[in-house]
Design a protein around this nucleic acid. Sequence first.
DNA 1: ATGATATACTTAATCCTGTTGAATATCAAG
DNA 2: CTTGATATTCAACAGGATTAAGTATATCAT
Lengths: 168, 168
Amino acid sequence: MTQQDPQMGVEYNQQTNFEEVERVIMQISWLGQRQFMQLLDEERFHLTLPQFYTLLHLHQIADACKMSDLADATHQSAASLTGVVDRLLEKQLVERTRHPRDRRQVMVVVTPRGNTLIAEIKRARHEQMHSAFMHLHPDDIDTLLRLLDQVLLGMMRVLERADSGRWA
Amino acid sequence: MTQQDPQMGVEYNQQTNFEEVERVIMQISWLGQRQFMQLLDEERFHLTLPQFYTLLHLHQIADACKMSDLADATHQSAASLTGVVDRLLEKQLVERTRHPRDRRQVMVVVTPRGNTLIAEIKRARHEQMHSAFMHLHPDDIDTLLRLLDQVLLGMMRVLERADSGRWA
DNA sequence: ATGATATACTTAATCCTGTTGAATATCAAG
DNA sequence: CTTGATATTCAACAGGATTAAGTATATCAT
């Protein structure tokens, strides 16, 4: 599937593999999000992707978080986030409070109910993904993790550069 | 970042790394799609993610494709796809025709204009991603490609199984 | 203290896309 | 020519993205 013409030089191969990795990552992202979207749509969850990632972040930091930080962390605009949090609130998965000192800030926290739901979704997702990774050697898992961590780091660097570019 | 407690056994480590890979892939997918969404939103492109992936598939097969196949390939419902193709049509990136033998089928093809746009987007995406991969060793790129191909294959197997389950 | 400016967030309007179920058109068979 | 299956679209609604404008609170200069 990813074989190269043996007559091609090394540089061409590298260039091609480079583009192939991009392509495969794009495909995995698209397919993965679609599959996950369907999982989240099941009756027991009834969440959307933005709702899930928002709830996940609150679960991970396990503390109150102000709207603008939450928007940054989940890569959503503040305007969209308001609606997302509204819906999480209706489902009683989060709570909204005001910052005591600076009353402009709105703080959001997960409820126990929200934490439970995240745990259930993680389990379901784990089962779904298990069969996709099953065939990988344990050593390969380690390698994959190391490499993907580097890719993620690189992507976040791109983001920071774009952010600083705003006021350049 | 992904260190394990050395007192933990091998099995625990594997389990943990397994979950870590899931987590990192989810993060890369989410972050990647968000970044890409912003890129596609630029004036020169003005596409959405579903529009792009639909156009990309048509570009890749380089031939007419009927709606239901296009929906399968891009993991969208036929109903949503109708609207997506409508908008691609307005932008003159695709053309709709009827299958000559079976007039129920609607065939879609990319226009030259659509192919040009895909090429431009690929170049822009390449520049965006380049800095994320820059720090990876060429050997690592090879390894990453091999492993991600396996992951993608595994994910598609999950999909096929889910599909066959429909009429089980 | 007062008025200007900045910050944090919400609201409103519009578009895209997702879902479901019904509607339409076409084909294939009896 | 009905009957039933198939391919696609339509209609109605919800979520969420974007932009611009609006509200409330805070901060700072005078």
